[in-house]
């Protein structure tokens, strides 16, 4: 295997890990707590572009920029949450989608910061030692550790009192309030924390992509993560992981990279992929409404 192919492999693994992280965070927001966040890409993109702008345009050191990305996403999530988290789920869906759309437009229009469609680069890596390749491998390991930590957190948290509180909010928020739980406050804190982590993943993704273009901030990522979570099982910690494997890994990685297709068919695959996603989603919802992993087990 040539170095190019290994480099591509590192790139793909990094993407997979990022998407698994996003899907797991969405599981915490939606599957556990019932917050219908349809603006995943908004927080992810905000983190990504904050890091990009700070490092490329202002030469801010990486770790400071990463912290900056976390703070900016956190503040945005807090303000948005303050406005929408006591609304019903349809309103939350529309409001978060609107937030992501605003982010996407800001990336296009604030050319002084983001360079608009021309693109922003080169975004540095967290730890730059030796070659570009080495940095990318280190970045992949950083991502694996970060997402591993998110998944581990989700595991422990869900069998802790806090996870039970979040489930009770999803089940019946008024009943939880009548037991003295300040549900709005708890949802706001949890939404802010998990959305901030989406922003941090976005910032790290900036380093994976190295060159940022507005296409990254399109709703595609939101849809991918949502489809994956629903396929895998929204109520299960590993639902995101299984879902990303069933969608992104199978179609985008395995089929597109390794299946030898006759000339002329290669262009059909990306479109066919969406059809197959849809078909799979319909089948899962018909025969296994809670996704491949199904209902969570009683502790």
């Amino acid at each position: 295997m040539g170095v190019t192919l290994v480099a591509y492999f590192v790139y793909l693994v990094s993407l997979i890990v990022i998407y698994v992280g996003l899907a797991t965070l969405l599981h915490l927001q939606f599957g556990l707590t019932g917050i219908v966040n349809f603006g995943v890409v908004g927080f992810w993109g905000l983190g990504m572009y904050t890091l990009g702008v700070l490092t490329v345009q202002y030469n801010v050191p990486y770790l400071v920029a990463l912290l900056g990305a976390a703070v900016v996403t956190g503040v945005a999530a807090f303000i948005l949450g303050l406005l929408i988290l006591d609304l019903d789920s349809q309103s939350v869906l529309v409001a978060t989608l609107a937030f992501a759309t605003i982010m996407s437009h800001l990336v296009l229009t604030q050319k002084g910061l983001t360079n608009g469609v021309i693109g922003l680069g080169t975004v540095p890596s967290p730890i730059e030692i030796g070659s570009n390749f080495t940095s990318n491998v280190i970045l992949m390991v950083v991502l694996l550790v970060a997402v591993g930590a998110i998944v581990a957190y989700a595991f422990f948290m869900e069998s802790a009192p806090y996870g039970r509180l979040m489930r009770s909010i999803q089940d019946n928020e008024t009943l939880a309030q009548s037991l003295g739980k300040s549900t709005f406050r708890e949802k706001l804190i949890f939404f802010t924390v998990t959305s901030t982590l989406m922003g941090v993943l976005g910032a790290l993704s900036g380093s994976v992509e190295q060159f940022l273009v507005p296409r990254f901030v399109s709703p595609d990522i939101t849809f991918l993560v949502w489809i994956a979570l629903i396929l895998g099982g929204k109520k299960r910690v590993l639902g995101g992981l299984i879902g990303i494997i069933a969608t992104f890994v199978v179609f985008d990685v395995l089929v597109e990279t390794y299946v030898p297709l006759p000339d002329g068919y290669a262009l059909i695959v990306p479109n066919l992929k969406l059809v197959l996603y849809g078909l799979m989603l319909v089948l899962v919802l018909m025969f296994r409404p809670l996704g491949i992993l199904g209902e969570r087990e009683i502790a």
């Binding site: 957190y153 422990f156 948290m157 069998s159 802790a160 009192p161 806090y162 039970r164 509180l165 489930r167 009770s168 999803q170 089940d171 019946n172 009943l175 939880a176 037991l179 739980k181 300040s182 708890e186 804190i189 949890f190 924390v193 969570r296 009683i298 502790a299």
Partner: peptide, 29 residues
């Protein structure tokens, strides 16, 4: 009722004081 909580969990929820319900407390069950 809370659909996803067992009877015991329901009572645990009611009995949990706020200082046990923090997002960073994950080993206090």
């Amino acid at each position: 009722d809370f659909d996803s909580l067992s009877i015991r969990e329901s009572l645990l929820l009611a009995l949990t004081p706020p200082q046990h319900e923090r997002f960073f407390h994950i080993f206090n069950e």
